[in-house]
Simulated scan of single mutants.
Amino acid sequence: MSRISHADAPAMDDCGQRLYDAIWAQRPRAEVLGILLHDFQAAARVIDTPGYIQPGGFWTFKLAGVQGDNLIRLHIWPAGRPDRTNTEGIHDHVFDFTSLVLAGGAPMVNTVYTPLPDKDGPVSIYNVNYLDTKNVDVEKLRGRFMPVAQYQDHTSTGEYYTLKAGDFHTSVFENESFGVTLLATRLDPTIRCPRFFFDAHATPQMDQPRRPISVERRQMVAHLLQSLG
């Protein structure tokens, strides 16, 4: 599934591998930033690399990948997320990841949940089956659940956070502030597809990510460089 959904990521070159390794090893922000901006030339690559404005209102750029298994992802969170088309939902991923908060007006807040089976629970769990890089098929699983928050952490600029494949969570910058995160992901082949929670009595409408046009990309790159100093 991950290989299908990320098939459009550019192949990872030697410089990309250095960047990936630095993120995964949680090297200091200044070191990672130097590789990202100067060696990897991320500002130039973002102009052409696959990019999406997600339904949650943040921007995703797939900077490089190895057959969809290992990826470098740059996430940009505009203040207030004006392009958001849905509410922030509890979800998981098919990959483990390490994320560096490159910039942020406030901490990144991650809340991890456990779904407890409950016949009267408010949510169901849905599988997201990717048909290609853009289109998905949503499958409702049996049962109802009560999502219970297990822990919450706050990650400031220059710090890292990690999540495992299959961890149900929400991630958002506190107070809807502007922020930038840089992720190294590693596919977990034991997990078939990502999942999310949704109202057990409703049918989810899967909004498709929108590709930013050229002028939007250039404006975002300018904002990105300004925020990174």
Score class of each variant (00 low, 15 high):
N175L: 14
N110G: 03
E31F: 03
P28C: 11
Y113E: 03
N86L: 15
A202H: 12
Q205A: 14
T49A: 12
T98H: 08
P204Q: 07
V148R: 08
R18I: 15
V94Y: 02
Y52I: 07
P28V: 05
T170P: 00
H201T: 14
H91I: 04
A165V: 14
P204V: 09
L141R: 15
P147T: 14
Q150C: 10
V101G: 01
V215D: 15
A42K: 00
I125W: 00
G56D: 05
S124Q: 02
T185P: 00
K164Q: 13
C15S: 15
A202Q: 13
M206E: 10
Q41G: 15
D69P: 07
K164R: 12
W77M: 07
G89R: 04
V221G: 04
T85I: 14
T181A: 06
C193S: 10
G16M: 05
G80R: 08
L36D: 03
R73Y: 01
Y151R: 15
R81Q: 14
V215C: 13
M108P: 03
D8P: 05
A7V: 06
G56C: 04
H75D: 07
A200V: 08
I4T: 14
L102T: 00
L37W: 01
N70C: 14
T133V: 09
K140Q: 09
D188I: 07
F40D: 02
R211P: 08
D199Y: 06
L182K: 01
V94M: 11
P115F: 04
V101H: 02
G179W: 03
A43C: 09
C15A: 15
P122H: 11
T60W: 11
P115L: 09
G16R: 09
Q219A: 15
Y113R: 06
E216V: 10
T185D: 03
P55I: 11
G80H: 09
L225N: 15
F145S: 03
T133W: 01
D207S: 08
Q41R: 15
V128W: 06
L187E: 02
G229N: 05
G51R: 02
T162R: 10
V180N: 00
Q219K: 05
F196G: 00
A7Y: 01
G34I: 04
P50S: 06
G105Y: 10
F168P: 01
H6W: 06
R45A: 07
Y130Q: 08
F198M: 12
L163I: 11
I47Y: 13
D118H: 07
F97K: 00
V32I: 11
V180H: 04
A43W: 09
V172Y: 07
A7R: 05
E174R: 01
F178Q: 02
I53A: 12
I35P: 01
D96W: 06
L102M: 05
L33G: 04
L183R: 01
S99I: 05
P107I: 11
T162K: 12
P194R: 05
W59Y: 13
P147M: 10
H91F: 14
L36E: 02
I76W: 03
A30K: 13
G104T: 04
A42V: 04
A25M: 15
V128G: 00
F178I: 03
R144I: 09
I90A: 03
P122V: 09
T49V: 10
Q152K: 14
T49C: 14
H91R: 12
D132Y: 11
R195I: 03
F198R: 00
P115W: 01
I53F: 07
A44E: 12
A43K: 02
